[in-house]
Amino acid sequence: MALSTSTRLGACRLGSRLTPPCWGVVSTRGAAQSYRRPGQPQDNTPPWKKIRFSFPKGVEGVKKHFGLLKQEMVERWVGPEGRSLREHMLEQTKLLWEFRGPESLEQWVVSSDQEIGGKSEAYLKLGRNNQTCLLYGTLYTAPPRDGETRYSGYCTLRSRQPLNAFDRKKHHDWSSFNTLHLRIRGDGRPWMINIATETYFSHQRDDMYNYFLFTRGGPFWQDVKIPFSKFFLSSRGRIQDNQHPLWLDKINTIGFTLGDKTDGPFQLEIDFIAVCNDRAHAEEFAYEKYKRNPEV
């Protein structure tokens, strides 16, 4: 609550220098830093030195979390997630994110390979008339010269993990839907959609379910429907041999990654992200799961 790490503050400052002075721009840096670059000394500052106590922040936190707690308890009387049971059971489409104002950008984190020493830049801002979200920047594939990193060049937009009161994790539950629906406009570059789910063991922390998002380019919008059965499991950027269908009841985040090994500017405009129930789609999983591939 009252803690704020120095990295986050530094990132904000850096970001404001990189971006044009425009409100509503989220900077490239700012994602959680768990990756230590090769050659970087270990951060040995003891945890108590990172504590920054601030009384007003604490009061703010108490207000926020008790407000959330109250909301959580009241919502339960209406129905699941604060909506009526009829709506919860019968709805065929659900709008997850639409970008209609600066506060809608706060649920997203932009990051790029600057974290690993690359040079790509990515920024997020509202599009024309504050109606869409525009992810733009430049991709550079030159790997950092640290002697170990072999590839570089990615930019990512990732939604924040939704949190309940007292920072307990909240999950998206999409189990009554089977298709992801996006309305996007790109510039012809291929993207990748990453869905991270809640896992049980800590070694599954980096597991993600991926699928491709191809953009056509041009001035027209593009409606993309991707069944969840097409998503394949990967961990740390590698497809796994043991595939498993995506379980939709505990979704943490959704993200978009660009990394097509092409230097140059890119842009992706997102109108909304939704899930829907495609009744014509009966496939459970698009890949073999009855045996390991390749079979041992």
């Binding site: 690993i116 170990e148 570089s152 950027g237 497809i239």
Partner: peptide
Amino acid sequence: MAQGKTSLYRGMHVYT
């Protein structure tokens, strides 16, 4: 994307 040598054995690169 940085990867250690161990992950080399794990599988295919997703993005490619």
